[in-house]
Simulated scan of single mutants.
Amino acid sequence: MTYSIVIVDDHLLIAKAVAAIVEGFRDFEVLYEAENGQVLTERFKQPRHVPDIVLLDITMPVMDGFETAAWLKEHHPGVLVMALSVQDDEDALIRMIKHGARGYLHKNVHPTELEKALYTLVNKGMYFPEWATSKVFRTLAEERAEAPATPRLSDREIEFLQFAATELTYREIGEKMFCSPRTVESYRDSLFEKLGLKTRVGLVMYAVKSGLVKL
Rank of each mutant, 00 (worst) to 15 (best):
M60E: 04
L40F: 04
V50T: 14
F28M: 13
E74Y: 11
D64N: 15
T59I: 07
T68H: 02
V39M: 06
V62C: 02
E67G: 04
H76K: 06
P51V: 04
R43T: 01
V50Y: 08
V54P: 15
Q38R: 05
V50A: 10
H49L: 14
P61V: 12
L31P: 09
H76D: 03
Y32P: 08
L40Y: 03
Q38D: 07
F28D: 01
V81P: 05
N36E: 00
V50D: 04
Y32E: 14
T59C: 06
W71K: 12
I53M: 02
E33H: 08
P77A: 05
V79A: 10
I53A: 00
L56A: 13
A34E: 11
W71Q: 10
F44Y: 14
V81K: 10
P51E: 03
V50M: 07
Q46N: 14
P47D: 11
V54I: 15
L55Y: 06
T59K: 11
H49N: 15
V30R: 12
F44G: 10
F28N: 13
E33D: 13
E67K: 10
G78S: 07
V54F: 08
E29N: 15
T68Y: 01
K73T: 14
V79S: 14
T41Y: 00
D57C: 02
E33Q: 15
E33C: 15
Q38S: 05
V39Q: 10
N36V: 01
L31C: 10
V62L: 01
P77N: 07
F44D: 12
T41G: 02
Q46Y: 12
P61F: 09
M63A: 06
I58E: 12
K73A: 12
L72R: 11
I58S: 10
N36I: 02
R48H: 08
P51G: 07
T41F: 03
E29F: 09
N36W: 02
H75T: 08
P61Y: 11
R43G: 00
V62D: 07
L31W: 05
Y32R: 15
M82F: 00
G78P: 03
V39L: 05
V30M: 14
P47H: 02
T68K: 00
L56C: 15
A70C: 11
G65V: 09
Q46P: 01
H49Q: 11
Q38G: 00
L40G: 03
I58N: 04
H49G: 08
H49Y: 14
I58C: 09
M82E: 06
D64K: 01
E74H: 13
L72H: 12
G37S: 09
L40M: 12
P47F: 04
W71V: 09
V62H: 04
M63V: 03
F28V: 14
H76Y: 12
T59S: 10
G78A: 00
G37Y: 02
V79L: 07
E29P: 08
F66K: 07
V50N: 08
A34F: 07
N36C: 05
Q38H: 06
H49I: 07
L56G: 11
T68I: 01
R43V: 03
W71N: 04
E33F: 06
I53R: 03
H49S: 15
P51S: 08
V30C: 13
H76N: 01
V62I: 13
V30N: 09
F44M: 15
A69F: 02
A69M: 10
V30G: 13
V62R: 05
E74G: 00
F66M: 12
